[in-house]
Write a protein that binds this DNA or RNA. Sequence first.
DNA 1: CCCTTTAGATTATGACCGTACTACCATAAG
DNA 2: CTTATGGTAGTACGGTCATAATCTAAAGGG
Lengths: 219, 219
Amino acid sequence: MARYAKEHKQVTRQRIIETAGRRLKRDGIDGSGVATLMKDAGLTNGAFYAHFASKEDLVAAAVSDQLRDQREWLASIVSGRAGLEQMVRTYLSPEHRDNPEAGCPSAALLDEITRCADPTKQAYTDSVLAFIDDIAAGLAPHDPPSARTKTLSVYALMIGTLQLSRALADRQLADDLLEQGICNALVVLDVTQQDWAAGCSDRTAGVEHAQLRHERPDT
Amino acid sequence: MARYAKEHKQVTRQRIIETAGRRLKRDGIDGSGVATLMKDAGLTNGAFYAHFASKEDLVAAAVSDQLRDQREWLASIVSGRAGLEQMVRTYLSPEHRDNPEAGCPSAALLDEITRCADPTKQAYTDSVLAFIDDIAAGLAPHDPPSARTKTLSVYALMIGTLQLSRALADRQLADDLLEQGICNALVVLDVTQQDWAAGCSDRTAGVEHAQLRHERPDT
DNA sequence: CCCTTTAGATTATGACCGTACTACCATAAG
DNA sequence: CTTATGGTAGTACGGTCATAATCTAAAGGG
């Protein structure tokens, strides 16, 4: 009856999603055409709409798929703070910066995702939270909601740092920025919840050093 | 001899750059066509190449122009650490998040700039550094190079936080993230150079609290 | 063993938009 | 009245998303 095995279509769909993931991160969403995305998977454009309702539908699926991959990788590597630190160093490494097509979809596509329709943003949000909550749970099992926001903020820090490092034309400066970003991430991770509660809602959050306060002569 | 005043073309060029700035941040680089960009300035597509060599040439000019604006605004507002804190809070405000077309070009376009040709990335780098060095000079006149990297890293933190806040479908979470981002930025700003030198090159950089270290049973 | 059925893919098509370029035009200064 | 400037309109040619018609090849029925 059927020419193909039962899961053949699912397999093909998955292949499209995976190859599209790389292409999208390399050339951007608006920069990747449907025909190209299909060609990458060894198919032609016509078959696309048998698998996806629209291009954005594929984008949502591809981003979700990659974040799920990251989540699994992370679950296997990270345990305890040492694992977290290793994750930060891997994320903010020159290798990650120089190979966006194999890296984090957020770093490669975040501001294009920002301009996507709601369903895509929702899919992105769900995938990111699944990923973040995994870390947050290991980080502070006693206080999940606070840990979620904090973990998310560290993720944001890493995304911005990697993006900026990619955009800078000065390679030395880009490298220095990555190093500094690692330090920043670790500092933020090591500031305790108490510090936040005590100091941050209004002021400087537990770190007392104030050497940098040069009150310039106000105009 | 000439039908127009001497600076007429310059004025027109500037108008194109400014209207294009808003459009680019709203719809993205690949999402904005030359015809649309010209229409925004009250002109037609044909005149474009009398002002710019290519679309990317305009992009570079527009981004530089906006960063210069930001620089001037910042120079007028920020003085001393209090000014810096105000800047951080303004940058990571819901208003900024919800109005990308009027906001920071880095937050709106950074990963598209990443995919631009070298001249564009060079123009971006120069503009960012001019802007960053202004802050760094006020922050640590005794140690400019270190302050440059540090300031840049805080900028990256803010960019990533704003982008992620824009992408999240959960508004409450997006707001919480902004708040957390403000705390993180202030913490990073208040860690002194000595702390970095002493602790960060290998470890945790001056912040001693370790409550979050739950060594999960390693597998 | 042939032949129908049908899932999945290909090719072709639609209408539109993308960048880049060229020919032409209107106008005011000299 | 000539000249040069800044602009408009039109064009070339390819790419865009999405849809429709056609083809291919294997599985199952007789």
